[in-house]
Design a binder for these strands. Structure first.
Lengths: 341, 341
DNA sequence: GAAATTTGAACAACCGATTTTACAATTATG
DNA sequence: CATAATTGTAAAATCGGTTGTTCAAATTTC
């Protein structure tokens, strides 16, 4: 690999001048500059990234921490992040936390040591966790910018971005209530997962608003995986007084419920209505098509990357931004058989 | 951030000794070492990644180039790569090439400048492309290790890893032929995509082996996206002499075909049998369940990462490895209605 | 035309580690 | 006991850039 010194030597000048010439900084005579450029090209010179970063304290790398790339809502979000990041000259490191706080902290540590310019933390338990809050503070002191996504917590000392989980859940539940269901099972996520909690609150609020008693027995806790939707859904459906509708905290589990219902020979939505959350691609491919809450995943990713990089490229820290996107309920056949109408 | 010099000062020694103490290299007296460790801990010292990498010429970062993370075969492969990489102490940069050779080259360049230790290139056109072959050579000279995945080309100057696309396609096609189908439509990928070409060859060979004439009119070229499977499938099915079976070069397109068939009211598999390739998660969730060719995606990713990192950690270059995994045909309801039996 | 300003480029310091070298202090060997 | 081998540590070089300083030369200003 050719170094800046070899270029300088061939161009009969010094490294400083070569650096200035190639970076268009300071005074360099036209002629000198052209010569340096010619030599650099001939020797196929490219600056050494590490050496440069060491000096400039910029790596042009951002890191992304999400629970699990294999969960179908993430690839699209990631793609949004990547496209925006690449457009702005950044590369993207991606890691999975499996939503474990310890793992999140470990990754935050690794990334800050690697001197990435910024980190997007897609939540698990997220900043609800004390240790994570501390970590966030440290990162901020180390000059590493952070954007947290997936839920909102007041006074979070970073930029954040999320859809309104409460509102989305509230509205689907209301949709189910309006259809006449008054016994609605809810399949939540892990108990410490903020998003699941928010969605559960939305579910609860909608019931209350309809003067229906919230009942613990109608709430089951899954893990956002299909298998748990299947198991818990089957359990609901086999009860003596089975709920007439089941709302799962994400689409993947809702699809598990659909499979369970199918296996038990229950007609959807006649015998049991099913709704999910996220609007993953497969929600509209599975039969019956799944009623769900839609969030613009690609755009969320793109926006998150933009926020992060904007934050990186400013020196005087603005106050933290907190963006809450409006979710949209998409009604499909799993709750409302439109053929019938 | 504390530097090694501050630690040295507090421990009343010099940076060299601190370095040796913390890295267990060379002679350091037990007492000195303990003292240094204590001070380092107290000052919360962590070595500066860039400075260290600059000197050691190792970044502990590998890069992954794939066509598109949003394509459902990749998240699982990626997860396999990440898990293995993290286990071995590496972080993973991920970028999408959209299977464009120019983009692949651009990314290879960026990553080599970023001084990643190794790159996994998931193929589009891949090393078939002249410029990419040249690029690979340059990388190799620059000491960046490479593993290419997704197809096999003889005498490729790198390690490579792939399933036997030909064989997989051959076997599904044979399965269809054995069911009595003698007019089988094939939906291929983009013309320059190696994997699609290989699968097409397998399809062709199976026909030949069954003494059935290969007919250009029965081959359509899609882009691996669902939409193209839908469109081309619909086109096939609406022909006067529609094929009785359709084999798509990947599951996503096959699912498009299923949707097309459903829309046209054709019964699967009675009126049209449908098969895909990849065995993505959704292949067994969609109804009818999709017959397809399975490849162990997570394990492929894990193995690829292992190969790459093994290659990184050896100095004397072994001869290149070429691993070809056996695919497995999974027969489901989209070709064979098992209830009927 | 002298003084002030601008331009150009060499030199050296710096980023923060690792590694080599040199040398002093111990310990082992014959 | 003298010499050789081993241990321990400070000092300096190195990785490959960027940036600040310095000073000479060219240009502008009064």
């Amino acid at each position: 690999m050719t170094t800046i010194y070899e270029v300088a030597k061939k161009a009969r000048t010094t490294s400083g001048t070569v650096s200035r010439a190639l970076n268009n900084k300071g005074y360099v005579a036209e002629e000198t500059k052209r010569k340096i450029e010619r030599v650099a090209k001939r020797l196929n010179y490219t600056p050494h990234f590490l050496a440069r970063s060491l000096r400039t304290k910029k790596t042009d790398i951002i890191a992304v921490i999400i629970p699990n790339i294999a969960n179908p809502i993430y690839p699209e979000i990631i793609r949004g992040i990547q496209d925006k990041a690449h457009e702005l000259g950044y590369q993207v490191l991606i890691s999975n936390s499996d939503a474990l706080p310890e793992r999140e902290i470990e990754l935050l540590t690794i990334f800050s040591q690697k001197r990435v310019d910024g980190i997007f933390l897609g939540t698990g338990e997220g900043a609800e966790n004390k240790k994570i809050r501390e970590k966030i503070k440290k990162l901020s002191e180390a000059g590493i910018k952070l954007v947290v996504g997936g839920f909102i917590k007041d006074k979070l000392p970073t930029d954040s971005l999320s859809i309104d989980n409460f509102q989305g859940a509230y509205e689907v539940t209301k949709h189910l209530l309006n259809l006449g269901h008054n016994k609605i099972g809810f399949i939540s996520g892990p108990k410490n997962a903020r998003v699941a909690q928010e969605r559960q609150k939305g579910y609860r609020a909608a019931l209350l608003n309809h003067n229906i008693l919230y009942h613990d027995g109608l709430v089951a806790y899954g893990n956002f995986q299909q298998e748990s939707g299947y198991t818990l859904g089957k359990d609901f459906l086999q009860r003596e007084k089975a709920p007439s509708a089941i709302f799962a905290a994400n689409d993947v589990m809702a699809i598990g419920v659909i499979l369970a219902a199918e296996e038990l020979g229950r007609r959807i939505p006649e015998e049991v209505a099913i709704a999910g959350f996220d609007d993953i691609t497969w929600a509209s491919i599975i039969r019956p098509r799944l009623t769900t809450v839609s969030q613009p995943k690609y755009e969320v990713g793109s926006l998150a990357a933009e926020m992060l990089i904007q934050r990186i490229n400013e020196e005087n820290n603005r106050t933290f931004q907190r963006i809450i996107l409006k979710p949209k309920v998409v009604i499909r056949e799993s709750t409302l058989n439109q053929e019938k109408k």
